[in-house]
Design a protein around this nucleic acid. Structure first.
Length: 274
DNA sequence: CAATAGCCCTGGTGGC
DNA sequence: TGCCACCAGGGCTATT
């Protein structure tokens, strides 16, 4: 499940393979992947363009094509962007192929086909639902307790649902939300507006720490996530609670419990988290 | 307006 | 061993 650290790792690993290379040919094997514009226009608009840079915003990747054009991609659950040698066979679950001018090609693979791609120009991101309303990035100077406090104060959502809201914070998903709450010792079901300023301060710090650790460990791989080199992350070996239902809490040894919060599987320590 | 249930989708898994 | 219901969940849409 690519969240901010995984998407950042994909970005970093793709750079040496694709930046500076021209798209010679674009093949779409699953039309649904391309959300905008129509597939023939997407193909026509990408062929001949050189990938100048790769940026990230929340869980979105941006392949900058110059002249204000860019490909915007979201991997959702099982999407992957991967660079492979031109001689390599088509990878499993291939949904799109960019043939590049070097000796490598860029593939979009996706098992569950929730992933999305757009070809946009500057000013065109309003076409992507939810992109322009993304909240600040963890670890950025805009992401502060002073920013978080008034929003939390007026929200009656469970705190986990609140921090998963991409308009509040960009890039947190189910794994890092559970981890942030475990590190800050806060119950995921607590209503957001019941958190004290001190608790929000602890949570804010925990979010930054958990995201920074995820990036440092090259992301978390459970099932399908892989980076631009096809490599898995290491962060799954450092998790406090996610996927550890029934196992002992790393702080107190109490058996971790799984519940549902906002329809999402949620693991927490019933003793540490209050 | 806010919260929530349903939906998209496929592979892995647990139970019988 | 084989079958099958169920679960994983990001984000949009419909409903309450």
């Amino acid at each position: 499940m690519p969240e901010l650290p995984e998407v950042e790792q994909v970005r970093k690993t793709l750079i040496p393979h694709v930046v500076g290379h021209k798209i010679i040919r674009t093949e779409v094997f699953l039309d649904r992947l391309v959300q905008y514009p129509a597939v023939p226009d997407f193909i026509q608009g990408t062929v001949g363009k050189t990938i100048r840079a790769i940026n990230r915003r929340g869980k979105y990747l941006r392949l900058e094509l110059g002249d204000g054009f860019y490909i915007l991609g979201h991997l959702r659950m099982t999407g992957a962007l991967i660079a492979l040698p031109a001689s390599a066979p088509q990878p499993p679950y291939a949904k799109l192929k960019f043939t590049l001018d070097g000796d490598e090609n860029l593939w979009f693979t996706d098992i569950r086909t929730f992933g999305t791609l757009y070809l946009l120009q500057d000013g065109g991101s309003y076409k992507v639902n939810g992109y322009e309303t993304l909240g600040p990035e963890p670890l950025s100077k805009e992401f502060t307790v002073a920013y978080l406090e008034p929003l939390a104060h007026k929200s009656r959502k469970p705190i986990k649902t609140f921090i998963l809201d991409q308009t509040v914070i960009a890039g947190l998903g189910n794994i890092y939300a559970d981890e942030s709450l475990a590190l800050s010792r806060i119950m995921p079901t607590r209503v957001a507006n019941t958190l004290s300023r001190e608790e929000l301060k602890v949570l804010h710090e925990a979010i930054n720490k958990v995201i920074a650790q995820g990036i440092a460990n090259h992301g978390t791989t459970f099932r399908n996530y892989q980076d631009g080199d096809g490599k898995k992350g290491d962060n799954q070996n450092h998790l406090l609670v996610y996927s550890r239902k029934g196992q002992p809490c790393r702080f107190c040894g109490t058996t971790l419990v799984q519940i549902k919060v906002g329809g999402r599987g949620t693991v927490y320590c019933p003793k540490c988290q209050k």
